[in-house]
Design a protein around this nucleic acid. Sequence first.
DNA 1: GTCCGCATGTAAGCCGTTACATGATTAG
DNA 2: CTAATCATGTAACGGCTTACATGCGGAC
Lengths: 206, 206
Amino acid sequence: MSLRFALLALLRVGPLSGYDLQKQFALSVGHVWHAPDSQIYPELRKMEAEGLVEGEEQARGQRGTRRVYHVTDAGERAFQEWMRSPLEYARVRDPAHLRAAYLEASTPAAAREFFRAHIAQWEGELAQWEGELKRIAALDNPMLARRLAATPPPDRERTVAFKRFTYEGLVERARGEIDWARRGLALVDGLEAADGEWAGSGANGA
Amino acid sequence: MSLRFALLALLRVGPLSGYDLQKQFALSVGHVWHAPDSQIYPELRKMEAEGLVEGEEQARGQRGTRRVYHVTDAGERAFQEWMRSPLEYARVRDPAHLRAAYLEASTPAAAREFFRAHIAQWEGELAQWEGELKRIAALDNPMLARRLAATPPPDRERTVAFKRFTYEGLVERARGEIDWARRGLALVDGLEAADGEWAGSGANGA
DNA sequence: GTCCGCATGTAAGCCGTTACATGATTAG
DNA sequence: CTAATCATGTAACGGCTTACATGCGGAC
């Protein structure tokens, strides 16, 4: 349900083709809301059918065409409404913590592997988000630059401030996950040292 | 895809009916992996069809019946395999940070309301998880008690340790979100003070 | 002329949500 | 006898994933 607002957020700074949108998406909003192209193109069509955006067919070479979308008044209103409406939070569904809660049922080796993978996963995200923070500070992101160019000077500080603030939050979250998993590794060490019997032969269920 | 493993994790400590399972689910695994009853019953049927669990029809009163499920060997193997296999992380899709990144497009009032709701949301989760932590420390959770009763004494420490560790991680995450949102409120104050013009009349897009 | 990037999708399927539907048993 | 709780689902729909499908344009 948020995809359309992510798309509107990008289109609000100026018209883009589906293709460009999709490329820019991956480099900006995509860092907080992933979406593959196979979802973006149909969603744009749906939004057009609902009057939130309008697409103009443009010629490209002899036979090629591309569809350039821009936000309509209704689209802008929908975006503003979304901004003012309470956010719908997804129910918790966290595979990593689900597994962590039952790690005693497995082996020390598997537990370590799990935590190592968790660290790797979040270090990847961390790198993305830290990179984005740097690009924000340097005004080095193409969409952000375009947005600032279209923003009256007194409003620019705010625009940058919220982007920075958002990514700071994400960076902290990633660090938290990494810290937690590191402590998980230490916990496995401790438990294994305390009890040589944790071979994890398997069944200790009923 | 994790739902079945959450169900297996519960059933591994002993047979349960769909109904009991669903009740216990909400009080234990449900804190990390939400699932409504309307998903649990069909999933149990599917798991039975795949041989992971077996259900026995039991009489209840004159005409009533209930189906009591237990884990099969294949189910136990599937659980162990899952424990050893790399976890599939969902792509990032975070409506709160999505909105946060574009808060300059809205009004200070709406921004504050957003952060307040974020705090309320995570304080709710925090209360759940802290409550669960206390119940773990007091061995006051019915499923945990049952599990410990079915666990050989030397293995009990580990069982409790991983539960505690899991919920500690969740508590920290919640605190992180709350801290972030509090700083968001401060940021809105600062930006509003710095520039009286942020009335958020709306359109500052293209 | 060939390859890379531009450009746009469709199809099948799973997972999950919300709402609805039904009836039996037991405690008061 | 009435309400709560035990007990088990179905139906419709939406969002997302994965894989597949197609063809043009420009650069080398």
